[in-house]
């Protein structure tokens, strides 16, 4: 019984975080381009959905905690997040790289034109989101060195990590709705729903943790002295 619930959870996760974006992509009316360009678009869409999925692959998801052991969840969280961050890290370059294969504007010229278009809110949001994501990735990588520096130790780190994740999600979501080729109404609603659910899970975790916070702080503070 436990096994089938696990299987069910995995299937549901894949269906929501892979199936639905692919479905909305397929139903969208953005014109199809070359296989390479469409593949890059799908890759980017999936990477962003995976980033949204991280809110559900965490301590905040009690259902998941009841099905899997925390180290298991943590490992999947880590692998998926690093992969998605990798793709989104390259996202600005992936937009212009196919131009190597055709005439027209050169990739570097396109890149410069794009990232210097500061009059456009969507571009600015995207640049900031990208920056936040880089911080997110770097801090995660060095978390072992960083955690002791937080007053609240691990809990402080969690707040920090959650705050970065929420900021990234809001900025990136806004950016993708403002500029995204495939972010039509259906895709936007899907992204927003996932984000709101994720935020709600995180908020519940923090609210639940909040009353304990003073005592926790006291304890950890005491331990430090």
């Amino acid at each position: 019984m436990k096994l089938s619930a696990r299987t069910f959870a995995i299937i549901a996760g894949v269906a929501i975080f892979v199936g639905l974006p692919l479905l909305f992509y397929a139903l969208g009316d953005a014109p199809r381009r070359t296989i390479l360009k469409e593949a890059l678009s799908i890759l980017t869409l999936l990477a962003f959905t995976m980033m949204l999925g991280q809110f559900f692959l965490a301590r905040s998801n009690e259902t998941l905690l009841s099905l899997f052991r925390p180290p298991q969840i943590q490992k999947v969280h880590k692998v998926i997040a690093y992969t998605a961050i990798g793709v989104i890290f390259l996202h600005p370059a992936l937009i212009v790289l196919p131009r190597f294969l055709e005439g027209g504007i050169r990739p570097w010229d396109a890149f410069v034109t794009m990232i210097t278009d500061w009059g456009n809110l969507g571009i600015v949001l995207g640049l900031v989101a990208w920056g936040v994501m880089v911080v997110l990735g770097v801090t995660v990588f060095f978390r072992k060195n960083l955690i002791p520096r937080f007053t609240l130790r691990y809990r402080g780190w969690r707040y920090f990590h959650g705050a970065l994740a929420v900021s990234f999600t809001i900025l990136a979501l806004w950016h993708s709705i403002a500029l995204g080729r495939h972010t039509d109404l259906a895709m936007s609603v899907f992204f927003v729903t996932l984000a709101l659910l994720g935020f709600a899970l995180l908020a519940r975790l923090y609210w639940a943790a909040a009353p304990k916070k003073p005592s926790n702080a006291l304890i950890s503070g005491g331990a430090a002295t």
Partner: peptide, 25 residues
């Protein structure tokens, strides 16, 4: 069609026949 426009106006400027214009960014 124009999908994923970032409002840089490159197309407006480079169209020899003034086919494209900017509207709300």
């Amino acid at each position: 069609s124009i999908n994923g426009c970032i409002g840089c106006e490159e197309c407006v400027k480079s169209c020899p026949c003034d086919v494209i214009r900017m509207e709300r960014g």
